[in-house]
Amino acid sequence: MAKRESTFFNMVLALLTVTLVASASLGFIYELTREPIEMARAARKNNAIRAVVPDFDNNPTEERYTIEAAGGELVFYPAKKDGELVGTAVETFTNRGFSGTIRLMVGLLPDGTIHGIEVLEHKETPGLGDKMESDKSDFSAQFEGQNPEDFRLRLRQDGGDVDGITATTISSRAYCEAVQLAFDLYMDKDADVSYELPSRDEAVERVLADFANNPLQEDFLVMANGNEHTVFPGRRGRRYTGLAVDIYSEAGYIGPIRLMVGFDSEGVITGIEVLGHEETPGYGDLIENARSDFYKQFIGLNPGEDNIRLKEDGGIIDNISGATITARAYCEAVRSAWDIFRQAENR
């Protein structure tokens, strides 16, 4: 084949073909590699979590919460075994490294004792500052088993208990600072903690067990007890598979409690998320899914058959100690959600 002339038509044709084939094949490769890339990313974080906390059987990434501090945010990954908190992996950071930001994963036992520390990211000098990595020196090992309550997280020359890395004072100091920040925020229950509650849209997707449509686009209003409530139907094809109900109770200890309750088509509860509340930190806020397993006892119940009340009120729900009023309001909201579910059924 002879070389084509550089006519306008030939040029446009060549460029168009080349770019079309290129972008089509890239789209194809992107789809192929998307899952492995996401898995590799998740695996990296999970490995770091696994390395710093005791054995767990939950998915800490799913139950993570964040606290804003020091001009950034710390991410907390609660590790649980058989529903019991065995440790929390805290993704913490400092901007005071020798060459910028250092990110650590600090594993804390429930009492605040350090179980392990891994470096997630740093730009420190190779051969000096990078000795903070656990496979490059024993520096990070000295923190293991220590409780910062009585183990002063400062270098010896600064009056603390930490042996710094030789010739790397600034990096070692920054490392201690990041660990201290993780510990402080973990222990300080009264701190201005903004646990990340799910948005309404996220909650709808989490509480419905089975759906193939976009429930957010098919929402409608249901009247119940004199108020309008938004509901989101789940469908698979034309088959109706469940309903998410946006509901609140005015009977909270401090203010209203807003929930998203998901039912399957039979009326069995498939999930609950707290959308908002003003309850007391450390007590009433245990209704949040990230903070306790209170919500789990509702899943699988059918409010038409099961008595959704606290045990002291003659029902089957275990109370949250110290937060009876909050727990009672939560149950009330779940029962109203079921009323709305039945109303919506009739449509």
Binding site: M1, R4, E5, S6, T7, N10, A14, L15, T17
Partner: peptide, 11 residues
């Protein structure tokens, strides 16, 4: 041979 000379570099 398919690509004209003038647009070969972009291709």
């Amino acid at each position: 041979n398919f690509v004209p000379n003038k647009v070969r570099i972009p291709c």
